[in-house]
Design a binder for these strands. Structure first.
Lengths: 116, 116
DNA sequence: CTCTACCCATAGACTTTCTAGGGAGGAAGG
DNA sequence: CCTTCCTCCCTAGAAAGTCTATGGGTAGAG
């Protein structure tokens, strides 16, 4: 209870995990590290959120898994996107930017998207 | 069930309601209309989400209410921000833009905030 | 051998949102 | 008058996602 820490992922966790896996197949732990490092630790991915999310998405056929060996020589479950997952990622990304834009307008600021 | 409609407010409802009330005291129905109109109906505020949110925030002393008469000559409960609510609004707004920025970075685009 | 980092997983609590109701009153048109 | 629409309020219960709190196992460093 020491730090307040930015608590919520607010429904964007799936999208970010899919994005990570779109870059390359990876295991859960690596996905969490990738997101945390990519945001200077602003977004902290709790394992209690991450693994249920992965299982959820696998049930929905957005990703598939396979046991393998990690770089550090440990047992790890590697996930990769399915075609369906890729479509979902695109849809969610578009919806999120639209949503964020709308919230921005309401909150009195403007959001701008620039191509990667 | 006809339209898929952007389903989630993802924790931003309180913030937007506070923003609306920061502009001027208003009743729930008007707040909902304000948000919907301000976003071209992209963000639809369901009453089943709105009223619980208002009561929640009142319990937390972010807003206070008073019964009054609406423009259309109807009984309406007017809400206005407390000092605490104003602080909460500022904090939530800052946190949201920070969060949205971080998500944007992860998703491969950049978000820019412009002053009102 | 011990400790740390890596890697997986689940249960239960908590919160928020939605669906699906219900109700009452003013206004407007027939 | 009567019916219908819009305004305005409210709640219960389901559904979903995240967090806290645990638990366990293994490789490698010191």
């Amino acid at each position: 209870m020491a730090k307040p820490r930015l608590e919520l992922l607010r429904g964007t966790l799936d999208m970010m995990v899919l994005k990570a896996l779109a870059l390359e197949p990876a295991h859960g732990y690596a996905v969490a590290r990738w997101i945390e490092e990519g945001t200077d630790d602003l977004l902290r991915i709790e394992e209690g959120s991450l693994y249920p999310a992965l299982h959820r998405m696998e049930r929905r056929r957005w990703i598939v898994s396979e046991w393998g060996q990690s770089e550090n020589n440990r047992r790890a479950k590697y996930y990769r996107l399915t075609d369906e997952g890729r479509k979902k990622l695109e849809a969610e990304t578009a919806a999120w930017f639209k949503f964020a834009e709308a919230v921005s307008v309401v909150m009195g600021s403007k959001l701008q998207e620039t191509p990667q």
